[in-house]
Amino acid sequence: MDDGAPFSLVLLDHMMPGMDGYEAAKKIRLLAKNEPLVIIILSSAPGLADPRRLKKLGIDRTLIKPLRRATLFEAIRHGLKPPAPSERVPTRPHEMAQARGLRLLLVEDNRVNQKLALRLLEKLGHQVTLAINGQEAIELLQSSAFDLVLMDIQMPVMGGVEATQKIRDAELKTGVHIPIIAMTAHAMMGDAEKYLSAGMDGCVSKPVRVGFLSAEIDRLAKPANAKTLVFS
């Protein structure tokens, strides 16, 4: 870039060794000075990026991998135009959540993180019940109906992946499907797929941000389906 050859668009992978996509974007934006340049980040973990940070780094858009040819083509063709709603990095549809007031089960063992999540969820207008591990979550799901579960991954007694598998097994008898969102610090490539294959429906990275949390809940919650579960 520093030999003066102009580029009009840069596609950057998010996770790269040495310098990640965000850091590279920041440097490229500085090098490009005021030249028109579109920077697109390719990420396999939606929901990890904070929109304000992206803006600050001069990133125009995030595309989720695996990339579809049509999406990439559209993104390049439109260049500087604002992204389509379905692709837009979520802002925060607080109003929607406030109107819904969902019954949420928060499964988290760490007290600092419990407090953060509880406060954010309550501010969004939801009713939150806390379970401190997967085992306790399963017990609560048998006695109360919830619209959605927010699940930490690594917990003592029973972790989030095992709890999810047990919940999905129990659901085979009832036909219900409670949305489960993984909350994970493992912002690593491949982890999201691991959670999805364990039966989770979505993923937010920790420390949680209210905008992404809210968007992920709104995307997945279907309140009418809530039922208690029977575990064998």
Binding site: D109, N110, R111, V112, N113, L116, Q154, P156, A185, K206, P207
Partner: peptide, 15 residues
């Protein structure tokens, strides 16, 4: 690993 994980979670929440 388990204890360090808990610490990591708290500390990253606190920036």
């Amino acid at each position: 690993a388990a204890e360090a994980h808990t610490m990591k979670g708290m500390l990253s929440t606190l920036s």
